[in-house]
Design a protein around this nucleic acid. Structure first.
Lengths: 154, 154
DNA sequence: TTAAATTATTTACATTCTTAACAATTTTAA
DNA sequence: TTAAAATTGTTAAGAATGTAAATAATTTAA
């Protein structure tokens, strides 16, 4: 077989040198695997992020969680609606501010989250096995730098 | 100011250890900066990927390009439509297969792409400056591993 | 105490991705 | 050679995600 137009024959040019492109390809792949692992839970990467913050920081408002995750406030509404309909999270009136909702895991949510984390850790281990000694903390450090970088507008 | 609910007070829990989460945050940030740099060209990261492949591999079919970039071929249609409407890319009938279109940069597309790459390289340099000696090839290598990993279905 | 800011929410919209279907064409197999 | 299967570009529909603007309720600041 002559392999015409197969991806092995492709010259990626500058793409092969761009961190942004490589990040994208890696992120898509790892997110797809995450979603496969967690499909039986009905949980996407985005939902898992919210759950993780709520579990470790019970009582936060929706806006605080959105800020923590770099999301827009308005996007939280449907996410929390969904998690509430799954009986995983509940909105409670905030004691200090009657405009806002404090978010908590429900008792079922606590159990659910523990099982979910076990699955997420399997997924993570599968990818971490690709990294050599010391590489995981290093890539996380580099990714933190890239995520925090705010270049001056020009 | 007591900084109530500011992101500094947030416990990210397991998220802080997940390569997938860190990848996501880094990727969103670098893509936003890419888009800002290239907004005057009307080019998104996705369009730039297609242009880069076409420039280095003139005459490829839409499906071959989609495969190279990990996209679905149906998504190529509107992308190529857009690039054609910008007079950057043109579809030509394939000599060997009357079902397919061979893609090429137009003469204007060649000039356009050169200017675009100059801007992309400025963007890239801004982020590469965050990485120490030897870290860029290393992160690209790690990202390649993560992007290529196909865990066995379980 | 008024004016400004913030919260959650709704709505609308643009993107992006998937999936399925289709006609035209090519490839494969009988 | 011919019939069946696969491939190409395309269209259409639906889901997911992100963004932006507007609103009422409430809080904060002047």
């Amino acid at each position: 077989m002559t392999n015409l137009n197969s991806s092995e024959d492709i010259d990626y040019g500058i793409l092969d040198t761009l961190v942004g492109y490589k990040l994208r390809r890696a992120q898509v792949n790892i997110f797809n695997d995450f979603s496969e692992h967690c499909s039986r839970f009905g949980i996407t990467p985005g939902l898992f992020g919210v759950l993780s913050i709520v579990e470790r920081n019970p009582g936060l408002t929706q806006t605080a969680i959105a800020n923590a995750l770099g999301n827009d406030r308005s996007a939280m509404v449907s996410v929390v609606d969904r998690l509430e309909s799954m009986n995983i999270v509940e909105r409670k009136p905030s004691a200090s501010d009657r405009r806002s909702h404090a978010l908590f895991l429900t008792p079922h949510g606590e159990v659910f989250y523990k099982e979910l984390v076990a699955e997420v850790l399997k997924h993570e281990a599968s990818f971490t096995s690709l990294l050599n000694e010391g590489e995981k903390p290093l890539i996380i450090d580099m990714l933190d730098r890239i995520a925090a970088h705010k270049p001056a507008k020009q």
